[in-house]
Design a protein around this nucleic acid. Structure first.
Lengths: 337, 337
DNA sequence: CGCGCGGCTGAGAGCGCTCCTAGTCCATAC
DNA sequence: GTATGGACTAGGAGCGCTCTCAGCCGCGCG
């Protein structure tokens, strides 16, 4: 035991206590390669007895790595945190990062003020990289500034306007949409309408795009109504379609929440699901199991999305060029065909 | 212009460019005292031309300050971020901190896993201090660990179980509750029931406590039903009271959301507000203006709470012992008496 | 016996900043 | 002329790490 006079123990204290050099302690701290068993044991003992904690700033200064990455909250927090998809991405990203010995810190970036501060913070060297989840188009300059500062950034969903410059991970929106339409076709449903999602997100555009493509000549603007992924907007879109009096036997909603809203409206209109109208959602979020009947939907594997995002981000932090990953979706058949 | 060969410019590059010494640049960076105008101008010019950004880790290493404080999210994020009170505290804390040149970082601390990571992060020297908002009792060990590591912590609301060890800022729950009851009395309402908030938060206990004290001998357990601050819980509590068939002419709800829930129930029961029953809430949150009639309530000045929290936290970071601040509430008279 | 080599260790330099101290310079006072 | 002191500056030391590299040791091989 050496005297520390109230200061926090340093690596030198540990080295002295263990009877080895600073370098050896450092080696133990960083994976323990090239260290004899005896030395390692001594060092570990000394770490415990001194209560040593690594000083992250000294380490960061030496390595020019911080070991943390920012998670940008670029949307109304209320919306963000009430969306189970986001929450799942958030949690599994934190898990995946922990697996790399890194930490996730949430960065507020909703208002203009906050974005300024966030930019300062992120480009100032506080984090090794950043994760962006909202892909709304209005975050343009913000993203641009981060890129200009050469901060590694990975996006969940295709970052519209930055497809070329930012690595991303996305579920296969087009493939999933196509599969839904084929599935409906296999059940004899051919007059399908689409409740589209917001067109400034890649999910919204991708699913609509696939809808148009697969329908081909049968496509008409009449078959589409737009919403913003919320339940209410799904209900409104459904009402709009009903008011148009186009004949249809199936509804493909851009996400589960909108599908649920549509089902509310269908029920009120006296239409039976799935007898009169089939309904299919997207995401497989919790709400899909709360509708009656339970919703058939296309699952987005968000845990895999997070894992891949972290993999890409770590790659990019390590100087390997960012990739683009598309993850297949999976049909979950329940009661709405 | 000096060559940097791709590395980030350092303070030495700036000094060379400006024709002054490193120390002078540092002084400009830290407030600019003891620097001649000429030197300052040169330095500022050099900072621009080199694109210099301070390296936070070098600075932290030298000062053993990080310039950032953690904001602990110790509740279900969904609940947290849908509560306008929390959001306001969050935003105004960030503002107040920015005024001190510091940054707020959000730290996830809901699940057990997250709390472990959070503890590591916070006590590892990544932040200068932390803000805790939820005061639910189950965060006990968590708080204890932070204190054990001598991390400066300030709580919003009285941290039950840690009143002695943690500085805090709270609105005057007891005074506010007392004022509400007096206000009702002044309007001739004397048979008051209380829809109490969660009893593991200081707001919940404080307001109930005041209710008991003021009523004195008139108090009876029959006059109280409990909720958890949510609108639904307010409705349930109201139903409970109605079922008991105790006579009452006024409802004092622990917060506005519960008051709104109670008003829903009263309306369905055919009771008119305020003619048959007066209703008073607490907080003055947005919902208070959305009820019909608009809700009379006791405003909690959350912006002042945040300001004071930051002041206390900065004090404590600077080695001055943490204080305790109680902020008066303010009656907002609207249409429910 | 000398040499090379794998396995391990320790010393020194350096990361980019702030803090401190000695020192310069100039104006004013005596 | 020197002394005094206020306004500033230069540069060394140090914050606590990591990284590189030379060096040591013991062993097997030619």
């Amino acid at each position: 035991m050496t005297k520390l006079r109230g200061r926090r123990p340093t690596i030198d204290d540990v080295a002295r206590e263990a009877g080895v050099s600073r370098g050896t302690v450092s080696r133990v701290l960083n994976g323990g390669h090239w260290v004899s068993d005896g030395a390692r044991v001594q060092v570990e003992k000394a770490i415990k007895s001194t209560g040593y904690r690594i000083n992250p700033h000294a380490r960061s200064l030496a390595t020019s790595r911080t070991g943390s990455v920012g998670f940008l909250l670029t949307e109304s927090y209320e919306r963000f945190f009430s969306d189970p998809n986001f929450l799942q991405i958030l949690r599994s990203s934190a898990d995946a990062l922990a697996g790399h010995g890194m930490t996730l810190v949430l960065i507020m970036a909703d208002t203009l003020d906050e974005r300024h501060r966030a930019t300062e913070y992120l480009t100032g060297g506080h984090v090794d990289g950043a994760l962006v989840v909202s892909s709304h188009r209005d975050s343009q300059e913000f993203l641009a500034e981060l890129l200009a500062a050469r901060l590694p950034v990975i996006s969940a969903g295709i970052p519209l306007g930055f497809e070329e410059q930012v690595g991303y991970v996305t579920a296969d929106d087009e493939g999933g949409a196509r599969a839904i339409i084929e599935h409906l076709g296999a059940h004899g449903r051919t007059r399908i309408v689409h409740l589209a999602g917001p067109q400034d997100t890649s999910g919204g555009t991708g699913r609509l795009q696939a809808f148009r493509t697969v329908l081909g000549a049968a496509y008409s603007d009449e078959l589409v109504a737009y919403g913003d992924y919320s339940r209410d907007s799904g209900a409104n879109a459904m009402r709009e379609i009903l008011a148009r009096e186009v004949p249809f036997d199936a509804v493909f909603a851009a996400n589960d929440l909108m599908a649920a809203g549509a089902m509310d409206v269908l029920a009120k209109a006296g239409l039976k699901v799935p007898e009169d109208v089939a309904v299919v959602g997207f995401d497989d979020s919790p709400v899909a199991q709360q509708t009656t009947p339970q919703l058939t939907t296309m699952r987005q594997p968000f845990d895999r999305v997070s894992e891949e995002m972290i993999r890409l981000l770590v790659d990019e932090i390590n100087g390997r060029p960012a990739g683009r990953v598309v993850i297949p979706t999976e049909l979950v058949e329940r009661g709405t065909v």
